[in-house]
Simulated assay, not measured.
Amino acid sequence: MIKLGSLCICDDCNNAMFTGVFIGALNRIYCDNCYPLWYERATFYEEDVPFENKATNRLINQVNS
């Protein structure tokens, strides 16, 4: 995230983080502590896959540019 210009902030606890998990369907990122808690209550929706892929690819392209 530093490559994009700043530290990343967890969308759940609002703490700065160096590693985390991006959820493309929600366009959100969670720290390693918050992600497992989110995952426990998450529901997978097949119809979100195209949006998730688009959001994830956009982030990957930003990081790689």
Rank of each mutant, 00 (worst) to 15 (best):
I2L: 12
I2T: 12
S6H: 12
C8A: 15
I9C: 00
C10Y: 05
C10G: 05
C10M: 03
D12M: 11
C13W: 07
N14F: 13
N15T: 15
N15V: 14
N15W: 11
N15R: 15
A16R: 15
M17Y: 05
F18N: 15
F18T: 15
G20L: 00
G20P: 01
G20S: 01
G20D: 06
G20M: 05
V21D: 10
F22D: 00
I23T: 08
I23C: 05
I23L: 09
A25L: 04
A25K: 07
A25Y: 02
A25G: 06
L26R: 01
R28F: 04
R28D: 06
R28N: 09
I29V: 14
Y30H: 04
Y30M: 04
Y30P: 04
Y30F: 14
D32R: 13
D32L: 15
N33H: 15
N33D: 15
N33M: 13
C34Q: 01
Y35N: 07
Y35R: 07
Y35D: 06
P36T: 05
L37P: 04
L37Y: 06
Y39H: 13
Y39G: 01
E40N: 07
E40F: 04
E40I: 02
R41V: 12
T43W: 00
F44C: 01
Y45E: 11
E46G: 00
E46M: 00
E47D: 13
D48K: 05
D48N: 10
V49P: 02
P50W: 03
E52P: 00
N53H: 11
N53C: 09
K54Y: 12
K54L: 09
T56W: 07
T56I: 07
T56V: 11
T56Q: 10
R58I: 02
R58L: 12
R58N: 12
L59K: 00
I60F: 06
N61C: 09
N61V: 02
Q62F: 03
Q62C: 00
V63Y: 03
N64I: 08
S65D: 05
S65P: 04
